[in-house]
């Protein structure tokens, strides 16, 4: 039997009746049509599906939609306010992506990383992204992008 779920996604309130077993990532992609959040595995390892729930990064394949009831969810489509978020810009500038599939999750995880530690060392960036797998880049330019975004965002705050 379906259950009702309500949440704010990228600032817009949504209410739907869903199967109780519906994963948050399926709710976002299939019910709301927000296909920017990709699915890369079924064991919560790869991080392609990373979104923010009430401001914290979460793997949306590991959360039931009903668990996000009443929460504020942000996906890749919801950052940047119409222009590019500094993290998106940094991934572009630093060639931090190739096939692009891990990129939305990687960007969401990276923003969360800087929220927790605004001035991370390269080693801290590398460890901070251990929940996100990229097969293309060898991570080097992703690390460069996060470091560059950290600088940019620190400058914007100052």
């Amino acid at each position: 039997m379906d259950v009702s779920v309500s949440m704010t996604v990228n600032g817009v309130e949504h209410s739907h009746a869903v199967e109780p077993r519906t994963l948050l990532v399926h709710y976002l992609r299939d019910t709301l049509g927000l296909t920017g959040t990709n699915i890369g595995c079924d064991t919560s390892q790869c991080g392609a599906c990373t979104v923010h729930i009430d401001g914290d990064a979460a793997k949306s394949c590991t959360v039931l939609a009903v668990q996000a009831d009443g929460c504020a969810v942000t996906t890749i489509e919801g950052i940047g306010n119409g222009s590019l978020h500094p993290m998106q810009q940094a991934f572009w500038d630093e060639h931090g992506l190739q096939c692009g599939y891990c990129t939305p999750g990687m960007i969401m995880a990276s923003i969360d990383l800087l929220n927790r530690n605004a001035d991370p060392s390269r080693a801290e960036i590398r460890h901070g992204l251990e929940g996100n797998i990229c097969r293309c880049t060898g991570y080097q330019n992703i690390v460069n992008a996060v470091a560059s975004a950290a600088k940019e965002m620190a400058g914007a705050d100052a």
Partner: peptide
């Protein structure tokens, strides 16, 4: 030269097969 394809990927607008409806 910076990549032309990147804006759609960093915005979550990639046109992957799984996104086709």
């Amino acid at each position: 030269v910076k990549r032309f394809e990147d804006p759609r990927f960093i915005k979550g607008q990639g046109r992957y097969v799984a996104n086709i409806d």
